[in-house]
Amino acid sequence: MRIIGVNREPSWLIFELFFPLLPICAFAFVYKSMNAPTDYLGFVILGGAMTAIWMNVLWGMAAQFFWERESGNLTLYMLCPMSTMAVLIGMAFGSAFSTFFRVIITFLIGKFLFGVTLHVASYFWLFVTFILTIAAVFSLGMMMASFFLIYGRDAWNILTVFMEPVFFMSGFYFPVKTLGYPLGALASLIPITLGLDSMRQLAFALGPETAFLPVKTEVAILVVLTVVYLAGAKYLLNKLEYLGRREGRLTLRWQ
């Protein structure tokens, strides 16, 4: 459905792919204006690439049921003999087309506009960290999606709180270590925090100097977070679907 949607409205690609890159460039120019090392610009580029994934989780996955209910599709989903988790995972994969394209473009901009070069310490661990980060954030996204089975505009507005505050707490544009350990530990509940920290350590020469925790510890925590959020998503989707049915909120539009 997502891929067909993109085909119907190609202008979406331009808005989704190119224009969101502008704030990332702005943050890179901040470091450039300070004559900071190129790796710092790389930190921004990596953080910027991960914003594409986080935005996909927030608006392509967590808020998916909001749109489906507003357009009247949610009731059809409920009528079908299928799992709501499967729908959400499918939607996430459908969005992956534009999301990963945006990630690649972000890195190309980093390389050709800002001269960022990667010094990868281990491609294996970099791949493992990336996949685990994606798994954990998608599980978190499914948990958040469950709230849209009973809430409407209120959940939608509250979701906006997970943008800039998460960009700040998770250290999208600076290493999370800068926040200090207590705040960093709290931010680690958002999987992208540890994922970003690990990837910076593995992909940049200056990365290890800014490490919050060792890579293997962060990988272990990401595994735990994935399992916990996946179980939480399963529980919450079932529970809130039941509540939505009982209170008649599954078909309630414009609330």
Binding site: Y31, M34, E164, F168, F174
Partner: peptide, 29 residues
């Protein structure tokens, strides 16, 4: 969509976070 207290928190938290992002970028660099 919300009571005034929640609305106020939501209203102020985003600009505050934007400001803190830049402050911590300066602090880091």
């Amino acid at each position: 969509w919300a009571d005034p207290a929640i609305f106020a928190i939501i209203t102020i938290i985003r600009p505050l976070a934007s400001l803190l992002i830049i402050i911590f970028m300066f602090r880091f660099a």
